[in-house]
Write a protein that binds this DNA or RNA. Structure first.
Length: 335
DNA sequence: ACCTGTCAAGTCTGG
DNA sequence: CCAGACTTGACAGGT
């Protein structure tokens, strides 16, 4: 089983110091600028800088064999803010977006977004649902502007339970069903650390034919008593749907993706540690290796790419033990 | 140069 | 019913 590792948004490497893809401006300082067109030009300048830095990060990834990367949602500052609803930055940023997408396509990279927890399709509040869909459409537009196909996904959580998880789940199903087909081709659902467990999320994925991103750390702190590998064959099936494999040729299917991180400590098991422990992750990977061709692992750790490098170093110690290091960010695991 | 409070958004808990 | 926690990187304003 081929395993590719990736990381989230920014690099902590010394050489990438100051290369932030998520520079921003607060609403307060935006409003302080009397000349509104000038203030908007400033926002657009920051966004262009963020895209340029994203491209630099992708090049850093190439240098380190990293093919899996999550884009930050904060590429365009204040993009979804109500007070800027009349602003459309996409025309002016078109070539910058394209440059990022072209580079990713040329180098066979798997990019994704993870709209944050303000996107809640399970909400009972119509205005919240509306802004959630607006947030999703913002992410759709960015992916389109980059020229990425439906292999680039938007990963979301199910959302809150509002005292009745069953009803929340049904609202989630209705909301997703109402989305345009192009949105569904780009969605994945992830189990969260306090509300929707892996089993509950998996059931929603199966009903909606949307692929599931299994977060094994979230599962560790929020589960129904089963091991993560016991769910894996069903998770695998969610990656075999037309939505999951939209734009993927049959000889190059999109591999399933999981999230991996380690708890910071016994007192706050939900927080992310600096790095990722190889042991528990490897145990899971070994258990699924016999019936899985390939899997991509998104590392969510404080040290970002530094955690990836640390994990690869640790995995080298298992080379006599079924782990073959193929390059700087890829291993082959035999069960 | 460095520190602290704040931030666009939503849910949940505790008072 | 409202304030605060949750979470994250980065701003903003202070020393």
């Amino acid at each position: 089983m081929k395993v590719r590792f990736g990381y989230v948004a920014m690099s902590t490497s010394e050489v990438m110091k100051g290369v932030s893809p998520s520079k921003t401006m607060t609403m307060k300082s935006f409003q302080k600028i009397a000349d509104r067109p000038a203030a908007i030009r400033k926002l657009e300048h920051i966004a262009a800088e963020n895209l340029h830095n994203t491209l630099r990060l992708l090049k850093h990834n190439t240098y380190n064999d990293i093919k899996v990367y999550r884009l930050t949602s904060k590429l365009i500052p204040l993009a979804t803010h109500q007070d800027l609803a009349d602003w459309d930055p996409f025309a002016v940023l078109q070539s910058a977006f394209r440059e990022v997408g072209d580079y990713a396509n040329t180098h066979g990279m798997r990019l994704s977004f993870h709209p944050d927890h303000f996107t809640v399709l399970s909400t009972p509040r119509p205005e919240v649902l509306k802004s959630s869909v607006r947030d999703l459409s913002y992410h759709m537009r960015m992916l389109d502007a980059m020229g990425l196909n439906a292999r680039a996904k938007n990963n979301i959580h199910v959302g809150g339970s509002y005292g009745d998880k069953q009803a929340a789940g049904e609202r989630f199903v209705d909301a997703v069903t109402s989305l345009p087909e192009s949105y569904k081709q780009r969605l994945t659902f992830e189990n969260d650390d306090k509300t929707f467990t892996a089993v509950e999320t998996l059931e929603l994925c199966e009903r909606l034919a949307i692929p599931m991103v299994l977060d094994i750390h979230h599962h560790w702190v929020n589960n129904d008593g089963e091991r993560p590998d016991e769910l894996w064959s069903r998770v695998l099936d969610t990656w075999r749907t037309p939505y999951a494999q939209a734009d993927s040729p049959s000889d190059d299917p999109l591999p399933p993706k999981i999230h991996a991180s380690s708890p910071k400590g016994a007192s706050d098991p939900r927080s992310h540690a600096d790095g990722v422990e190889a042991g528990p992750l490897l145990e899971f990977l070994r258990r699924i290796a016999s019936y899985t061709d390939a899997v991509d692992v998104m590392i969510e750790a404080k040290l970002k790419d530094g955690a990836l490098f640390g994990l690869m170093d640790e995995l080298k110690r298992y080379e006599e033990d079924g782990v073959k290091v193929l390059d700087g960010a890829t291993v082959e695991i035999t069960p």
